[in-house]
Design a protein around this nucleic acid. Structure first.
Lengths: 187, 187
DNA sequence: CCTTCAAGTGGAATGCGTTCCGCTTGAGAC
DNA sequence: GTCTCAAGCGGAACGCATTCCACTTGAAGG
């Protein structure tokens, strides 16, 4: 596939900065496609050509931090990156993921609402693969595939939002429960 | 709150049977509010008065089986109901939940898409409470609250749909991985 | 019966995500 | 420089969930 045309790249940038501005001033609720298009000075058709749909736009807004996060656990310094013990890496990963999810909670909720299965096949599978690898090193005989889901699924934006906002549970409590679970596996 | 008026009850029944008919013939995608209203011979306003929104209608369709399921694990015969060992009850519960979720997968996906936080505060919390109770009996010192989420979250309709339909994983594999996790806890 | 009125009703109106399609333009080929 | 055309563009049109509100009615009290 050919490289993006220069006017298209310019529009992509205009759209993203308009969207960021809108989120900053009116929150995620204010992020309607027509609104963003108007603020960016383009037609709505252009938004859809560039980002596919509403959730695609949301993921694009999330993307920069996401890339940094993936780089950190794949090749960054320990305890997140290679070099530390597998169990420690798993704990560090889950804590970092929880933190990142909370930071971007509104955008993630919006993205998942707009298109609920989009997160699988994207970031989720990358996290899952990473955990399967680490769990395999901790306990080669374990059912790493299912265990990885048991560690990841409780950190979905939706469940996290519920626990934090409606049950008044702290992130620390959630991550420390997962820590316990990992320690149980490591033994 | 007063009892439902007789015409209202009649309309509720008409709407539910129309909705069931539509799901049976055109699948969940065909279940639009206008469609259901027309098939039931009522106005859309009536649908909203009775069921709140699209996801409310979906949960109403799920409800009958849901009630039977809740009765089964709360007061039915072992191993699901009281009488069996806690660990065995947890395993039976998770297997039954997975089965029920798969059976109603399309409706559940639709309901969660339409209003993603609605499932918490409803059935999810009931399941969670049940598991917290059982885990507390298995291991009083454990972080039952977080563990319950780690057992439940992997059975969300969305993750299950992904694993079954896109990854080709079987339900048996998913539930047996959870079985292992529970056995690890029971030790 | 008759009166009263909260509960219930229907369907037009609204808002928003998404699609469609005829027009425009960047950029490679000659 | 000019030709060509795939890529890109804008915004009208569409479908669908949801809201709104003026009208109707079941049923309780007198």
């Amino acid at each position: 596939m050919r490289r993006e045309r220069s006017d298209a790249a310019r529009n992509r940038a205009k759209i993203l900065s308009a969207a960021e501005r809108i989120v900053a001033t009116h929150g995620v609720e204010g992020l309607s496609m027509a609104e963003v298009a108007a603020a960016a000075g383009v037609g709505v058709g252009t938004l859809y050509r560039r980002f596919g749909d509403r959730s695609g736009l949301a993921y694009a807004l999330i993307d920069r931090r996401e890339k940094a996060f993936q780089a950190a656990f794949l090749e960054g310094p320990p305890p997140l990156g290679p070099g530390a013990e597998p169990a420690e890496r798993v704990r560090a990963f889950l804590r970092a993921l929880a933190e990142r999810t909370v930071e971007q909670l509104d955008l993630l909720l919006m993205a998942e609402t707009a298109s609920p299965l989009a997160r699988f096949g994207g970031a989720y599978d990358a996290y899952h693969g990473h955990l399967v690898m680490l769990i395999g090193r901790m306990r080669p005989e374990a059912e790493a595939y299912g265990l990885a889901d048991a560690l990841l699924a409780p950190l979905s934006a939706e469940l996290l939002a519920h626990r934090l906002r409606r049950c008044g549970v702290s992130v620390e409590r959630i991550t420390s429960a997962l820590d316990d679970l990992v320690s149980g596996l490591a033994r």
